[in-house]
């Protein structure tokens, strides 16, 4: 990897890492037998990720489990720091069909949906439309073997974002008192809007105030654009920021250079809330793709254990095969 060419600080994002509970496969098996049968059309499911502080140093997990098949609209199901996101599940009938699906076409379709939500402004009103996932599966029910491949579609727009400086932890920039004030403003916003991206305004009369993204055009004293960050890296934000920046680049291109982004990390450890490791990033310059009339390029298939683009497999015969279960129960 040739980082730091000409000492450019290119903004890099931490991709999501998928985590599938065994209960997901159990429920998929049930759905395949009882509901989908031979229908392999994509169906809507949900997943979720969480805000975390850097002390965990965990990957940016995106979880699916048995409840992903339920129609969850509210984030009650995912706890205080959970963020619900929509995904498409395509379960094929054969391994061949799984392999034959054109992966680029499939992810482009998701990218197009996200881009349309950006163009229409729908994503300004509802930023959760920006963070979607695609899950291809094939369930070999005889062998309890499951093949799967996640994609976290992201638009390459702008094509490159350059930073002024290394990201800074918010507790190095704000005083304890200021951070507490901001935290209160954020909590207020969260309880009334529940959105995962927001505009932070600060002025002498009001102090800090968080607003929904769609109010961006009407606000004057903008301090930061914030988003709930699943990354626990001390230097890099997580994947959701990428499509958020595509949204901002389309609607508020003039504001992007010089804009400060707050990567909000709201973790708990030892019963103590930790928000101080949230990052502040300042955008120095932005490079746009050459052709501007088409849909931006879309990327985001998850890499396998070897760091290559490829599907993963999981074998659950130990926990699902009735014969083996009977043996181990003796």
């Amino acid at each position: 990897m040739s980082s730091a060419v000409d000492n450019e600080k290119i903004l890099q994002f931490l991709p999501f890492s998928s985590v599938i509970s065994s209960s997901f496969w159990h429920k998929l098996t049930q759905m395949k037998i009882d509901v989908y049968a031979l229908n392999d059309e994509p169906v809507e499911i949900t997943g979720y990720y969480t805000n975390q502080s850097i002390s965990s140093r965990l990957p940016a997990c995106l979880n699916v489990d048995y409840s992903s098949f339920e129609n969850r609209q509210v984030s009650d199901a995912v706890g205080t720091n959970g963020i619900l996101c929509q995904g498409l599940l395509q379960n094929t009938n054969t391994l061949e069909a799984f392999k034959d699906i054109n992966k680029q076409t499939a992810i482009n379709k998701c990218g197009e949906q996200i881009w349309n939500d950006i163009l229409s402004g729908a994503a300004l009103s509802n930023p959760s439309l920006l963070t979607r996932f695609l899950l291809l599966t094939f369930a070999d029910l005889k062998k309890y073997q499951f093949y799967y491949w996640f994609a976290f579609p992201t638009l390459v727009f702008p094509s490159k974002i350059l930073l002024n400086d290394d990201p800074k932890e918010v507790d190095k920039v704000l005083t304890k008192e200021e951070l507490l004030q901001f935290q209160q403003a954020y909590d207020e916003f969260k309880s009334s809007y529940g959105q995962s991206a927001f505009v932070v305004e600060k002025n002498t009369e009001l102090g800090y105030k968080c607003h929904p993204l769609k109010e961006l055009a009407n606000l004057k004293d903008i301090m930061w654009i914030g988003f709930c960050d699943p990354s626990s890296l001390p230097t890099n934000p997580g994947w959701p920021l990428r499509n958020l920046l595509a949204l901002l680049a389309h609607h508020h291109k003039e504001r992007l250079v010089g804009l400060s982004i707050l990567c909000w990390r709201d973790g708990v450890r030892d019963g103590q809330r930790r928000v101080g490791s949230s990052l502040l990033i300042e955008i120095k310059d932005v490079v746009y793709p050459g052709e501007t009339d088409s849909i931006p390029k879309c990327l985001g298939w998850e890499k396998n254990e070897r760091g290559k683009l490829g599907a993963r497999t999981v074998n659950l015969s130990n926990s699902m095969d009735p014969e083996r279960l009977a043996e181990s129960a003796v």
């Binding site: 054109n102 992966k103 298939w301 070897r306 290559k308 683009l309 490829g310 993963r312």
Partner: peptide
Amino acid sequence: EAAVMEDSDLED
């Protein structure tokens, strides 16, 4: 096995 499941069609 992992290599078999890797996709050569995708622009890597």
